[in-house]
Design a binder for these strands. Structure first.
Lengths: 350, 350
DNA sequence: GTGAAAGCGCTAACAA
DNA sequence: TTGTTAGCGCTTTCAC
């Protein structure tokens, strides 16, 4: 039980006064610099301890230059893609001597807005962001505040900004072409119902592959799985929602012989729905996922999927940001597109 | 192509001199405060822009008090448990007005050491850490530097420190008792070969459950899956390694009728090994996992598993840390144990 | 070995 | 509306 007013934080001055030496001496003593008698050093140390002296980082940073810090604004950590992305970014940034301040937007524009404000207020040296792409776009303001920005994994078309992303169109095109090559003719695509460029581009890749193969294209072939990202932080519902959508599809009499799904969680739900209807994969329906999540290879049947280059994307984003943080040309925005890789397994008959 | 020496960073002073007003006026103009004529404001803005003036955060922080920041040192983001933990911690910390600086140790003592040094150097307000528990333990030094510390998910027995963890013993005990209740008599446990308390305690829980059920206990019932965390950041090898270990086990003629595995990835490998041998789950062998990873419910058969309270643990850790950061009793360490929850599904015959 | 003084770049009181 | 004066808490000359 401590009493009294929440007293002012102790400073070097307080310690100095208590011991009866100068501020300078205390500073050097506490930092272990030479040029202080062993005796006074001890006295000072003890006084500091007793008073509960804690150095003021901001004052020190002002003189010495504080740690360099970049913000990382991610929508969701539970997505294995982002997990790998974070890991790569943290590692590369650490190599460059930068700290990472993590903000989670959870696909909410409000939280994204708050993150952007914090980035500006804290004056971070730069920021890497996976934008929510909702009604609002707080990132131009960050650019205007002079904070270098790199957008990752999604495109911000209304903002002329450095971007590093997966080539989702190519990924979806390759996946779709693959199931066509394996004999599928009636193909559906399942995508999460999020208004983001990532998904737009995948849908386009799907369509282009069908068209290029001279297969008929019907809008109903692209099925949107309602998103729930706004409700929950984690994503465990993804498999369940894909399951329900697929059950519904099958109940209406559809019998696709090929399925391209927007992420590997969806494939889990799809597998279950197919099993329950007595449909076999790959005999009756080929399935290809997106992400190559750690479980994909161990499903029954092992899941063909588009492996996303999360590590590469992350490292490229840091490199790009470092470039600008270190004062390189203020105006030369570029878009880096990293190609994904199709991994074929038994779910597509390989 | 820019020439000349890497010139000093611009300050308010520079802008003020350029325009011919006082530093103060520039400050207020740039911050959009009232009490500056629209005219000079524009002039000042333009001059600042032209000179490439960027405010010095450290100086501002010194005056205003910078953002409060806590460090979060995690071993691995690819583990869904940690993903949820990070999410919960970030959210709760944000509510309290704190930023999160993320350090990834990847189960490497070297990186953990570096993280600890950075925490001290940066003078963070506090730190939440999942310790590596290797040869070295850099955390006492952090405590000594006066930085409040909360250990999460593992116990640091040689350090008297606030700890928030899952009750792993209880989880393993419950899981094991459950498969016993479901009829298993010859039970094995698969655990990752990491020298951490988490795993020690689970093994103990497993043993205690067997003993309490008067079942024979043999050291070979606990099978260690070699870890590879030191090589790779992500964890996609976990399923594969568990697979190999299980194949080996079955090849040696063992036929356990119950398996308790240390994480749900292991269950994936186990499932495959059983399938290949023509063993059925749950008919021939009951399986229970740890983690309730997002895919667990959608495996075939759906996986019984111990759901870990990652969110609760994370929030409790932040609360505990806030307590100390806000200057509460310096010496009253406590260990909070959050109970996990057994989720029974068809893999144990439910 | 120690202290006095200056200054890091900014904001805030108070004058003018 | 603007400028002057004081710090914020620390490190760093440079005397003594």
């Amino acid at each position: 039980m401590r009493t009294g007013a929440p007293r002012r934080r102790r400073t070097l001055r307080d310690v100095a006064d208590a011991v009866g030496v100068s501020v300078n001496t205390v500073s050097r003593a506490l930092r272990g610099e030479s040029g202080v008698s062993a005796e006074s050093r001890e006295t000072i140390r003890r006084a500091a301890e007793r008073l509960g002296y804690v150095p003021n980082v901001h004052a020190r940073s002002l003189v010495l230059g504080g740690p360099r810090t970049i913000g990382l604004v991610i929508t969701n950590v539970s997505n294995p893609f982002y997990a790998e992305l974070i890991s790569a970014i943290e590692q590369r940034a650490a190599e460059e001597g930068y700290h990472i301040v993590l903000f989670l937007s959870e696909e909410s524009t409000a939280r994204e807005q708050a993150a952007a404000e914090n980035v500006i207020r804290s004056g971070l040296d730069g920021v890497i962001v996976v934008p929510v792409q909702g009604e609002t776009n707080p990132w131009p303001a960050v650019e205007r505040a002079g904070i270098p920005l790199v957008v990752v994994n999604r495109r911000l078309d209304d903002l002329d900004v450095d971007t590093v992303a997966t080539d989702n169109h190519a990924g979806a095109y390759a996946a779709t072409s693959h199931v066509i090559a394996q004999g599928a003719r009636s193909i559906v695509m399942l995508e999460e119902d999020l208004p983001i460029t990532t998904i737009d581009q995948r849908i386009q890749g799907f369509r282009d592959a069908l068209v290029d193969a001279s297969l008929p294209l019907d809008d109903r072939q692209v099925i949107m799985v309602p998103t729930r990202r706004n409700d929950r932080a984690a994503l465990p519902w993804q498999a369940g929602d894909a399951y329900r959508v697929t059950v519904d599809l099958l109940a209406r009499g559809h019998r696709p012989d090929g399925c391209v799904v927007g992420n590997d969680y969806f494939a889990l739900g799809l597998y279950r729905a197919l099993r329950e209807r007595g449909l076999r994969c790959p005999e009756d329906t080929l399935v290809v996922g997106f992400g190559d999540y750690p479980f994909a290879e161990f499903l029954e049947p092992p899941l063909s999927t588009v492996r996303l280059p999360a590590g590469e994307v992350g490292r490229a984003a840091v490199d790009r940001l470092m470039h600008r943080v270190n004062g390189a040309e203020p105006r030369s925005r570029e878009v880096t597109l990293v190609p994904p890789e199709l991994v074929t397994r038994r779910s597509t008959g390989s």
